[in-house]
Computed example of a mutant assay.
Amino acid sequence: MSQSKKTANTLLLVLWTLLYSSGAQAHFQLLYTPEVNLSKAATLPIRLIFAHPLENGHVMSMARPQAFYYWHKDKREELLPALTEITWQGPSNGNTAFAAEVPIKRNGDYIFVVEPTPYFEPSEELYIQQLTKSFVNKGGLPSGWEQPLGLKAEIVPLNKPTAILVGSTFSGVVLSEGQPVVGAEIEIEWINGQPDLQANRFGASRVTPPASVLVAISDANGVFTFGIPRAGWWGFAALGVGPDKRYQGKALSQDAVLWISATELR
Rank of each mutant, 00 (worst) to 15 (best):
M1W: 08
S2R: 07
S4Y: 11
T7C: 14
V14L: 15
L15D: 13
W16Q: 13
L19R: 15
L30A: 10
L31P: 01
E35P: 01
N37L: 04
N37K: 05
K40L: 11
A42C: 04
T43E: 09
I46S: 02
A51M: 13
H52D: 06
L54Y: 06
S61H: 14
F68E: 04
W71K: 08
K75R: 13
E77R: 15
L83Q: 07
T84V: 15
Q89Y: 12
S92Q: 15
G94H: 13
G94S: 15
T96L: 13
F98S: 11
A99L: 13
A99T: 03
A100M: 04
V102F: 11
P103H: 07
P103C: 04
K105C: 09
N107K: 05
Y110N: 04
I111C: 07
V113K: 00
P116T: 10
P116Y: 05
Y119C: 10
Y119L: 14
P122N: 12
S123W: 12
E124R: 14
Y127D: 08
Q129T: 02
K138G: 01
G140H: 00
L141C: 05
W145M: 02
P161V: 06
T162S: 03
T162G: 00
G167Q: 10
S176A: 08
G178V: 03
A184D: 01
W190R: 06
P195N: 07
D196G: 10
L197V: 15
A204G: 12
A204V: 07
A204Y: 14
A216N: 05
G222I: 00
G222R: 01
R230A: 14
G232H: 02
L239C: 08
L239Y: 05
V241D: 00
G242T: 00
R246A: 14
D255Y: 04
D255T: 11
D255K: 02
S261Q: 11
T263W: 03
L265S: 13
L265Q: 12
